[in-house]
Amino acid sequence: MTAAMETLIQSLVNGVLTGSLYAMIGVGLTVIFGVMRIINLAHGEMVMLGMFSAYWSYTLWKIDSFLSAIVWVPLFFLAGMLAYRYLVRAIMPGGELNTLLYTAGMSLLIANVALFAWTGDYRTLNLPYAVEPLHPFGIAVPVPLAIAFGLAALITAALYVFLARTDTGRAVRATSQNPEAAALMGINVERIAMITFGLGTALAAAAGVLLVPSLYLYPTVGEILVVKCFVIVVLGGLGSIPGAIAGGILLGVIESFGAVYVSVAYKDTIGFIMFLLVLLFRPQGLFGAARS
């Protein structure tokens, strides 16, 4: 294998691994948008809280950060449902711009409470088994990222089964396609909205838990993540779950290739420029069918 070939494959692998986690965050945002038409600007903060939860589980109680997902993900599901029921629901009649501003407020509040509680220090989590990367076929794969990828694939598959096979999952998709028609078919749209908000929050937090050994964490990390998340869902088409998965992996690969072939400093810029281009010329997303 030539060196150039190796670099190409290496950055592709890195991109797909990181992209799978981006995809999870994006799916969380997109299901919430699909069902409630809320662009949740506080989504990045949910990822941040997930990251900190796993971080503290490891540093304070010596619980493996990946293992801690078993506790945190259901807790965040519950927290998301409560947040919708008691905080977000009352804003819904105000329209899209009001919910946008409201979740922006929520985002600033959560990030700054975290900043106050945990200071703005950059932290890292070093797992004992994650020192040496794996070397399958001569490609370096960081252990935590590989585990995160596996778990992300598992969670996404579980989500797929939930949405495709269960009654609640079908109701979520129906509400996403047409809330009025769904309500007429006897679906309790309010209940579905609550479950969906919980689901989106849980996905964001799960991604945070999985990301923590591979990323710096600090209270305002959500700010960057939420913007990336918009890039992802817009690439895939707002409201489309397969689109968000594809968009997440695509962004991961773009960033990884950008870092290698363009410049590390400008790798994020490439994603944003694509975002603008897609917003302007293909608002329904790269893969999505047009929807009103």
């Binding site: 905080l87 804003i91 105000g94 009001n98 409201y102 922006a104 600033l108 509040l109 700054n112």
Partner: peptide, 22 residues
Amino acid sequence: RFMVGHLIFYGLFMMLVIRFLP
């Protein structure tokens, strides 16, 4: 007094205003 976290109030009042005083 505390150096960090002063934007807590921005977020808090934003939520309260949108909710109760649009």
